[in-house]
């Protein structure tokens, strides 16, 4: 028996919206420790890793490890039938091929259940090595989304460079070029509005902007985003999910041949 109950159903909606553009079908892996998902986009350039720890749920029961294959667009559609304040419960039998989503209104005066067929998805898990990154930038998530959107009006790729001076986002296109520099800024009143740069070595990498724009669909999940880069590794863009875990996106760079 699997039973996961979340008082903030709206959180689950945000999680699905953050993934469904990048990944169509994925396995939700549930165990006693929580629920996780790892999937690559169809071109194998980006990878999304989700973790929702069991202690973040209001009720979490998972008698047996389960890997539940779902079409994320179908789940997202289904969750749109839940109110933002609804309590969402997922239920599945150990041997069944369906999952039930139950939505309860906050006053408990409306209860809906939607049953969805599970899919058999062959997916391979990748080992993500622990790494020390040359540069880690923490910044407001809305600012990061704004920068990616603004630069995409000019070009398709972005060069992200971290130096002592700050983090620079540069692009070039047919109509011209653009540079946006963000300096470390820890003097603001609220920590979620600050930009913090931890740099061991300067690093400069090139990425396709359309993937970064997909990642920014996670912006509603967190006020801040952390971007980690090393010259010989995919970048990591991480949004923390309050008290529960994270959604991490890995993106392979473009390199000069």
């Amino acid at each position: 028996m699997l039973e996961l109950r979340l008082l903030q159903g709206g959180l689950l909606k945000k999680v699905l919206e953050a993934m469904r553009e990048l990944v169509t079908d994925a396995n939700f892996d549930c165990s006693r420790s929580g629920c996780s998902l790892q999937a690559m986009d169809s071109s194998h350039v980006a990878l999304v890793a989700l973790l929702l720890r069991s202690d973040g749920f209001d009720h979490f029961r998972c008698d047996r490890n389960r890997s539940m294959g779902m079409n994320l667009n179908h789940v997202a559609k289904l969750l749109r039938c839940a109110g933002n304040d609804d309590i969402v419960t997922l239920k599945a039998d150990d041997d069944g091929d369906t999952v039930t989503f139950m939505f309860e209104s906050p006053k408990q005066d409306k209860i809906a259940d939607f049953e969805m067929k599970l899919m058999d998805i062959q997916s391979e898990h990748l080992g993500i090595p622990e790494a020390e990154y040359q540069a880690i930038v923490k910044m407001p998530s809305q600012e990061f989304a704004r920068i990616c959107r603004d630069l995409s009006t000019i070009g398709d790729t972005v060069v992200i460079s971290v130096t002592k001076e700050g983090v620079k986002f540069s692009t070039k296109g047919d109509i011209g070029s653009a540079n946006i520099v963000c300096r470390q800024n820890t003097t603001v009143d609220k920590p979620e509005e600050s930009t913090v740069i931890e740099m061991k070595d300067p690093v400069s990498l090139t990425f396709a902007l359309r993937y970064l724009i997909s990642f920014t669909k996670a912006t509603p999940l967190s006020n801040t985003v952390t971007v980690s880069m090393s010259s010989d590794l995919p970048m990591v863009v991480e949004y923390k999910i309050a008290d529960m875990g994270y959604i991490r996106y890995y993106l392979a760079p473009k390199i000069d041949e």
Binding site: H44, P234, A252, K254, D256, E257
Partner: peptide
């Protein structure tokens, strides 16, 4: 020319 690398160039199948 700029080549797009893939995730599998960095992370291996488990």
């Amino acid at each position: 020319t700029c080549i797009q690398r893939r995730i599998l160039d960095y992370f291996s199948r488990r």
